[in-house]
Design a binder for these strands. Structure first.
Length: 642
RNA sequence: GCUGGCGUAGCUCAAUCGGCAGAGCAGCGGUUUUGUAAACCGCAGGUUGGAGGUUCGAUUCCUCUCGCCAGCUCCA
């Protein structure tokens, strides 16, 4: 049979030879080959070739190769666990993006000491270099086999599999695991394994099921790569917005105030103010009308909107007042709808775009609260667009342009875009769903945005586009969302008078660019590690004197810089210059302006950039230009694309 | 909400077996007048998250409770 290796040789190979055999037969000998893709399917190197095929070799540099590598790593870890803790039962153990986990049914949580031992045992199993072999069972044989081994969770899994299809398991030494594969040829292929953490996880992800013990780990071809991965985890920890937020005195969340309720300290509030000012300016420029709405409303409003039926478990309890009930707002939409409703609208009025930095309150279960990322009171950068069906695609395109422009201004340049379509349970006609979904898709295509399809992932009231940003550490965060809503226009009986003199129902689009200011701020903190660009830095420069002689000079310079609109603070304390520099560095101030006698005589300042850059001596006028240039650097990006 | 872990000074952390709650930094008062990431001396700082219990005696052991952390589930 004819075998051709992708990007490699090809030739005749005897039928029935394994992939690995074919590779070596064609002279492709490479210990880094982990598995192969034959006619599109990822297979073991030990799998047999049955006919003419195109074989693509998979190494650690491909996502599929890494998946096989991590998957075999979970088996390696599971084998180590079974050897040390025979009573632990196997459940499932998949590969993640750059790590893996395995869930065990075990009578107690694993301790860090256990982890240490498991890791050592895993390293030992690597040294044993056990062959990893595939085995097929009939369903009944598989059930008998795993029952005899006491692996009751595996048996439950097998029972859920369709009848008649062969069931596969992989064996390495005494260890056998139910698994579809594929896997590495031997345990010795794994270079370095590192176990990370333990935690609880429900069987099949359902909180009514028993709690299993999950162990997370990672593996790489070399120890150096493991070390680099661990260093990255350290960096993530170092940038944690909860730590940086405290260190830089930006925000606090205090027991006395309540969980998930954020206090914005002056420096955090300064950054927020800058974000909000930018947001408002740009919205006005982009044709939005800004509105305000109260934090509470009669409960009836939430009955009409349907929130009481669909969202109650996420709402704060209502409060009684003067014989009626009031509800703290979990959403801004009903208010914007009521503003729309306050007049009879003409087709000429549309589109109407209402924007609000609207603070909402949602009851989140205690276990899900997380710093600024998940809170109970937060401000959405919300807007609701009311438009005619024929305007939908254009409006969505505008929102997309606006979103990318805003996100890029804040230093985010990588995005993952998802288009979510109709879920099983939904309202609205097929016609509406098709119209809206194709409008969203057309808008994405018109902007040449590549996206992933999340089939059935839409809201019950309409399809949506979600945009996830990637931060400096490559992590994804969901912020922006554009959602079409068929539900609210119906519930509130929204109308506009068309050209034909008749009432028509407008389309409503919900959208948020940053999502929540709290979360976005948390992401920004971690993205920049607290070192905000000059236009966002709460303090842009600190002017420091070397001795008391320059006291008045520094005070005068600060006054001058402040008058020019910059956020500048003096540091006139009786401290050595090294100490003042250290404090300003710790506070992540972009510029440190030092004045000694030399500078005072020349009317200059010695300029130090963040993290030690010596920018030399500059006159006060030159410093003003420098600061202006830094701020304008961002402002240049502020030109909307349309 | 569930499983596990943890709450000690503003911050970071000590305190042996249940036996006088301690250090560094920050703060305050002095000394020092300093050249690019930590000058020196002194002072002050605590209901050990909260409530109850065991005990001659509880930061330490037990119960409850509040909060935080990790994981699960859920989400902006």
């Amino acid at each position: 049979m004819k075998i051709s290796i992708k990007d490699g040789p090809s030739g005749d190979i005897q039928a029935g030879v394994t992939v690995g055999g074919a590779l070596s037969g064609l002279g492709v000998v490479d210990r880094d080959i982990l598995a192969a893709k034959v006619d599109g399917a990822v297979v073991d190197l030990s799998s047999a070739l049955s006919g003419n095929s195109v074989v693509e070799t998979l190494r650690f540099d491909s996502a599929e190769g890494r998946e096989v590598y991590r998957h075999s790593s979970t088996h390696l870890m599971a084998q180590a666990v079974k050897e040390l803790f025979p009573s632990a039962q196997l459940t499932i153990g998949p590969a993640l993006e750059d790590s893996f986990y395995y869930d065990f049914a075990f009578e107690r949580p694993f301790t860090p000491e256990d982890l240490q031992r498991i890791e050592e045992r895993a390293a030992e199993i690597i040294k044993r270099n056990l062959a990893i072999t595939r085995r097929e069972f009939s369903k009944q044989d598989a059930i008998d086999f795993f029952t005899s081994r006491g692996e009751h969770y595996k048996v439950e899994l097998i029972q859920g599999f369709p009848d008649g299809e062969p069931i596969t398991a992989y064996t390495q030494g005494d260890f056998v695991d139910l698994c579809r594969g594929p896997h590495l040829p031997t345990t010795g292929v794994i270079g370095a394994i590192k176990l990370l953490t333990t935690g609880g996880a429900y069987w099949r992800g359902d909180e009514r099921n028993p709690m299993l013990q999950r162990i997370y780990g990672t593996s790489f071809p070399t120890q150096a790569e493991v070390d680099a991965y661990m260093a990255r985890l350290e960096e993530i920890k170092r940038r944690d917005h909860r730590k940086v937020g405290k260190d830089l005195d930006l925000i606090s969340i205090q027991d006395e105030i309540g969980p998930g309720l954020v206090l914005w300290h002056p420096k955090g509030a300064t950054v927020r103010l800058l974000i909000e000012n930018f947001w408002r300016e740009q919205h006005i420029r982009d044709g939005y009308q800004l509105v305000y709405s109260p934090h509470t409303a009669r409960l009836d409003l939430w009955k009409t909107s349907g929130h009481l039926d669909y969202y109650r478990e996420n709402m704060f309890p209502s409060m009684k007042l003067e014989g009626s009930e009031y509800q703290l707002k979990p959403m801004n939409c009903p208010y914007h709808i009521m503003i729309y409703q306050s007049h009879l609208r003409s087709y000429r009025d549309l589109p109407i775009r209402y924007g609000e930095l609207g603070t909402v309150y949602r009851y989140e279960r205690t276990g899900v609260l997380h710093g600024l990322m998940r809170v109970r009171g937060f401000t959405q950068d919300d807007a609701h667009l009311f438009c005619r069906p024929d305007q939908m695609e254009h409006e969505v395109s505008r929102v997309l342009d606006f979103t990318f422009f805003v996100l890029q201004t804040f230093g985010f340049h990588q995005f993952d875009v998802f288009l979510s379509t109709r879920p099983k349970e939904s309202v609205g006609s097929d016609e509406h769903w098709t119209l809206a979904t194709s409008a969203l898709e057309a808008a994405l295509k018109s902007r040449n945005i590549s996206f992933h399809l999340d089939s059935g992932g839409g809201a019950f009231y309409g399809p949506k586009i979600d945009i996830k940003i990637k931060d400096a550490l490559g992590r994804s965060w969901q912020c922006s969302t554009v959602q079409v809503d068929f539900n609210n226009p119906e519930r509130f009986e929204l109308n506009y008078i068309g050209e034909d003199g008749k009432a028509h129902r407008p389309i409503m689009i919900h959208r948020a660019l940053m999502g929540s200011i709290e979360r976005f701020f948390g992401i920004l903190i971690e993205h920049y590690g607290g070192a905000f660009p000059a236009w966002l830095a709460p303090v842009q420069a600190v002017v420091m004197n070397i001795t008391d002689h320059q006291h008045d000079y520094v005070a005068a310079v600060v006054a001058q810089l402040k008058a020019a609109g910059f956020r500048v603070e003096p540091d006139l304390r009786n401290e050595k210059i090294g100490f003042k520099i250290r404090e300003a560095e710790k506070a992540k101030v972009p510029f440190m302006l030092v004045a000694g006698n030399r500078e005072m005589q020349d009317g200059t300042l010695s300029v130090r950039g963040r993290s030690g850059a010596n920018l030399g001596s500059k006159t006060v006028a030159e410093v003003l230009d420098l600061l202006q240039a830094e701020v304008t650097h961002t402002q240049r990006e502020l030109q909307p694309a349309h």
